[in-house]
Design a protein around this nucleic acid. Structure first.
Lengths: 191, 191
DNA sequence: AGTACATCTTGTCGGTGACAAGATGGTGCG
DNA sequence: CGCACCATCTTGTCACCGACAAGATGTACT
């Protein structure tokens, strides 16, 4: 849906979006400023507003992109591995690799969560996540599927959040993948 | 550590802190403004800065208070119930009942996480949480304690976060306590 | 050629955080 | 009692930001 033809700048929308993700990765959403992004792109201070309407619009675009990336990552992991644990690992890996997107996605007060593009991408990600759960819930004498899905999602989401906040003990090491496998294995007691 | 004697206003520090929590509960951290808090307290726009130095200073005070409340809630739950699951329930209940504190606490870019008051309260909360884990890890043929603690913490933290974001399916009902019991029971397979 | 349009610029307004300097009032000490 | 000290609060200011309006510029299409 971005314009196909470069005009004055080239592709300002994409440039601003990329710069926004970079700033978010370095400094967090509180430091994000449309005027700063405009300066980085070498355009006037009001140029970004034309593409995103307002700051919430920019963050809506970030969230939409994030949900699309997450859905892609989860479906890929789901198809590559039979084990749902790897879908959980992919979830944490996404959070670590795309911290900026992840932090915006789960801060609905910063953007417009009911944006149609966001909603469809989020639904796609949810399907990939719950689809992976269905397989593992069928193996054990497990409880009903939605509950197991919520438990699995809560575990990996909480782990990712705490990992990003440096709140977890250092004994877990510095590789989020192996740490996730160790911790998530407890939930599915496949140790 | 706040001043014991009221001066001009009465107790401006406490008034601003309370108002800040109220605003955070209603509108989130992005809408928080020192000048607005000053207006609500009926003082000049620069008065709050004297007590907190800085916006980050105000949020540091909120985070410190939050960690103290959390530590109190967790130790109370730990002493009242033998089951660790109830500590997890208390964790989620704290997040729901003190949403403003919870959201600030786990957003370290908003305040000064290395503030001594914050650090001690956080340590106290962590002790209460991990102390509860030790009991349950001893029951099962469970893996080592820190891993189980991280898993339990991740689960309740993720559940609380997702619950606050209205990201969870509506089939869980509207009572966070019962929902937490149902979901957390899966991890400790005491169903 | 000329119109329609998306893109970008310039200018402006109210609001905010941070800082500096000064006014105000309580506290304690001689 | 007088006075100096200090915490508290006020006033004033500056740079920055988001949002909006109006105009300029380049592109596409007829």
């Amino acid at each position: 849906m971005p314009p196909t033809q470069p005009y004055h700048h080239g592709d300002l929308r994409q440039a601003v979006l990329t710069a926004a993700v970079a700033v978010l990765n370095e400094s967090g959403p509180a430091q994000l400023s449309l005027r700063d992004l405009a300066r980085r792109a070498g355009v006037s201070h009001a140029a970004p507003a034309h593409h995103f309407g307002d700051k919430a619009g920019l963050l809506t675009a970030v969230a939409a992109q994030g949900y699309q990336l997450l859905a892609d990552a989860l479906t890929a992991a789901q198809q590559r591995h039979a084990d749902f644990l790897e879908v959980g690992v992919a979830y944490v890996r996404f959070a670590v690799d795309h911290r900026a997107h992840f932090e915006v996605m789960f801060r609905p007060d910063l953007y417009r969560p009911d944006d149609p593009e966001v909603a469809t991408a989020r639904q796609r990600a949810a399907d990939a996540l719950y689809g992976g759960v269905r397989s593992v819930a069928a193996t054990g004498r497990g409880p009903d599927i939605p509950l197991a899905g919520v438990a699995a999602w809560s575990l990996v989401h909480g782990f990712a959040t705490l990992w990003l906040n440096h709140a977890l003990p250092t004994t877990l090491g510095d590789d989020p993948e192996t740490a996730t496998r160790a911790v998530a294995a407890i939930l599915f007691h496949t140790t």
